[in-house]
Design a protein around this nucleic acid. Structure first.
Lengths: 161, 161
DNA sequence: TATTGTTATACTCTATAACTATA
DNA sequence: TATAGTTATAGAGTATAACAATA
């Protein structure tokens, strides 16, 4: 089990994630908003799904996911067919045009990354990829925006836990 | 040197960073906006600096950094003293009250992380921390928002590069 | 009655452009 | 003339709350 000390260091390092993510968002074409690309990537990877599942994977409020999907569907990048099991839901699916947009975005990101990581060994890149995947998995339970809300007044946190 | 294939995998994994970051932002007290905590963490780690340096480290436009700093100073979390070397600049510094706020936020994040990473070994946590630090360093040149802009029309990207 | 998804509204973060004070 | 920083404005992303349709 990881010590508090190591977790604290990791937490500090994670605070730079914002800047890293921004750097990648900037490599995307200006007509492909980062949020749209994220949704397309999820649909490509996991296949057809309902909005509720997408909401979980994005880690956002359902209203946000709904908005993104409406935009994607309006562009013809995704489709929404009725869910035969539940008439309240629709099944979301990436369309060929969406796959094309996703492919272009992925190419740009990969090129930018390969350029920045010239000094990295293949082994280290693979290691980081695997650790990030594992981190993502470990954090999945914290990803729904309604879980673990901090609503209490933040007084006297010197004795947290 | 890392292959395109491994970089492509890493790029795909990095797309989940948004959800990871959101999960951590949710652990913060509601009166401590994530952006403010990020600025405090940078000032704590790197010490006194000018706005231009903070702008680089945040990876945002100067106007954004200026705004954050104004908010922090209004709360008494940071101070701004005249730069003796250049009367156009001020030197930014974290104040005791800001350190206290940062400490509380860090505690929460660390606790949340330690809770999620119960199954991780100390070694793997340290490894991930080091690789993330190295990634952050490798990407530093891409972090200024004016560098590497993609302004050309994204036509025919099948032949990128 | 509970759940799935949508819409209206407001808040945070961000970038662009125009500006000032100083170098 | 160029640079450091600020402010006004606009746009993207997000959450809350109220709602409609279905389970």
């Amino acid at each position: 089990m990881a010590t508090k000390q190591e977790c604290s260091r990791l937490a500090g390092q994670l605070s730079t994630l914002g800047a890293v993510k921004k750097a990648f968002d900037r490599t995307l074409p200006s007509d492909s908003p980062p949020a749209s690309i994220t949704v397309l990537a999820i649909l490509k990877q996991h296949g057809e799904m309902r909005l509720s599942r997408l909401t979980e994977l994005l880690g956002v409020d359902p209203s946000v996911a709904s908005r993104h999907v409406a935009h994607l569907a309006a562009n013809g990048w995704t489709s929404r067919r009725p869910d035969p099991q539940d008439k309240r839901s629709r099944l979301l699916c990436i369309e060929p045009r969406g796959e094309q947009v996703l492919r272009e975005a992925s190419l740009r990101c990969t090129d930018a990354l390969a350029d920045s990581l010239r000094s990295w060994s293949d082994h280290d890149v693979r290691l980081l990829t695997e650790l990030l995947a594992r981190l993502d998995e470990s954090l999945e339970c914290r990803r729904t925006h309604t879980a673990n809300r901090t609503t209490r007044p933040p007084a006297d946190q010197t004795t947290t836990r």
